[in-house]
Structure formats: structure tokens, C-alpha cells
């Protein structure tokens, strides 16, 4: 293995997996309530919130990265907030990448959850309510099991999409080993430095990984025959 992947390549792989795991976990915590609300609300805010959540799907990552760099900087509103909170500045840190990735991968987690929640509908919840299940109880014993395919999709897509992130990291990362130098940036560096062999190994690894992840996804969610 050592001869193929350098220690700095391995560092990039570890860091990427760590970033994707932390991001996915955070997105599940933040995304579940948002998806639940979006699936059930009739509020006028539903449209604007859905649009906001879906923005990263259409925005070039450079736009997101550029605004993050400016707004998280010492003269930006978010940068002043994080400094006032004693968190320091986020660009060039792992925490900064997590913030960027959470925004960037948000639709990939929220949309599958929202779909799963919508499909459940009112029936099972009302049935559970007549059995005197509390709202929290209903969520954990009825909604979660029924929405399990949605959660699997959300986890897989959120994780995989974060692994494939490039533009945002490039803009706010600063290419620091073991802190912000993820696989995609490492590949870019190898290509730019004309180190095609190393670039090939990492790129082939990414290709294989992405295929396996999608294979997993589609095997878990096979097209259901109509009942």
C-alpha cells in the first residue's frame, strides 16, 4: 500500500472520511426536524425554506465558497459572530470545512427525509394517537421505522456528496495537511503538479467508492412492485 499511496494521500483519505462522517451526523440532527416540518407544514414559509434548502443543488460551489470565505472572515458578519463567541475564525480550519459541507450537502439529506415523511401520511400517526402514544413516542416508534429507507438514502447521499466536495473546500480550506486537505484537493494538486500516477490511484479510488456507494443505495431501495 505504501508504495501506491503516500502518507499525505492517506492523511487526505482519513480527513475526508472524518469530514463526511461529522457532516452527515450533523445533517441528520439538523435536517430531520427541518424535513419533518417541511413535510407537514402548510405555512407560507414552506416555499422559501424549501428553496433555501435546495439552493446548493443549483449554485456553483464556488459561489458558496466565495461567500463563506468573505462572510466567515474577520470583516464578515459570521466571522465577527464566531470571534465574539470565542470560536475564532473558521476558514482554514476543520470546523470551517464542516460548516461549508453541512450547507453544501444539506439538500441531499433533507430531501430524501422529507419525501419519506410525506409518504407516511396522517393515517399511522392518527392510529398511534388513538392508542395514546405521545407525539415524541409517535415519532420514534412510528415515523422512524417507517422512514428507514429515507434515512438510509439521506445518510448515503449526504456522506457521498461530502466526500466528493471540491469547490467549497478549495475556497475556504487553504490546503493544510490533516486539517483541510481532502482527497479532491489532493487529486487536483497531483494533476496540477503533473503527478499523474498518484492522481490516477486516488481518482480510481474515488470512482470505485462512488460506484459502490450508489450500488449500495440502489440495492437498498429497489423499485417496489405495485401492491
Amino acid at each position: 500500500m505504501e508504495s501506491i499511496l503516500s502518507p499525505s494521500d492517506l492523511g487526505a483519505i482519513t480527513l475526508t472520511l472524518k469530514l463526511a462522517s461529522v457532516t452527515t451526523l450533523l445533517l441528520l440532527l439538523i435536517g430531520t426536524p427541518i424535513a419533518w416540518w417541511l413535510a407537514r407544514t402548510t405555512s407560507l414559509w414552506r416555499g422559501p425554506v424549501s428553496a433555501l434548502v435546495a439552493l446548493p443543488l443549483v449554485l456553483p460551489p464556488t459561489v458558496l465558497g466565495f461567500y463563506l470565505l468573505v462572510s466567515l472572515g474577520p470583516n464578515g458578519p459570521l466571522g465577527q459572530l464566531t470571534q465574539a463567541l470565542g470560536l475564532g475564525l473558521l476558514p482554514f480550519t476543520f470546523a470551517g470545512l464542516v460548516v461549508g459541507s453541512v450547507l453544501y450537502s444539506m439538500p441531499f439529506v433533507i430531501q430524501p427525509l422529507q419525501n419519506a415523511f410525506s409518504v407516511i401520511g396522517e393515517g399511522p400517526l392518527e392510529a398511534a394517537a388513538t392508542l395514546r402514544a405521545s407525539p415524541l413516542d409517535r415519532f420514534f416508534t412510528v415515523v422512524l421505522p417507517l422512514a428507514r429507507p429515507g434515512f438510509l438514502t439521506a445518510i448515503i447521499l449526504g456522506f457521498a456528496h461530502t466526500v466528493g466536495e471540491f469547490g467549497v473546500v478549495l475556497m475556504i480550506g487553504g490546503n493544510i495537511p490533516d486539517e483541510t486537505r481532502v482527497i479532491s484537493v489532493q487529486i487536483y494538486d497531483h494533476v496540477e503538479a503533473l503527478e499523474y500516477t498518484q492522481a490516477h490511484w486516488l481518482s480510481a479510488g474515488m470512482l470505485l467508492f462512488s460506484f459502490l456507494v450508489l450500488l449500495l443505495l440502489y440495492s437498498f431501495n429497489p423499485a417496489k412492485p405495485p401492491r
Partner: peptide, 20 residues
């Protein structure tokens, strides 16, 4: 304490935004 830009424009961006 290095932060690296891919090219000199990005390096300038890091300093001009005050992040470095």
C-alpha cells in the same frame, strides 16, 4: 502557519478577505 492558495490569485484572496 502556512495556508496555501492553488495559484497567486487565490493567495491574494485569502489575504484580501482578511482570513490570513
Amino acid at each position: 502557519r502556512f495556508v496555501q492558495g492553488e495559484n497567486i490569485s487565490q493567495t491574494y484572496q485569502f489575504v484580501a478577505s482578511g482570513n490570513a
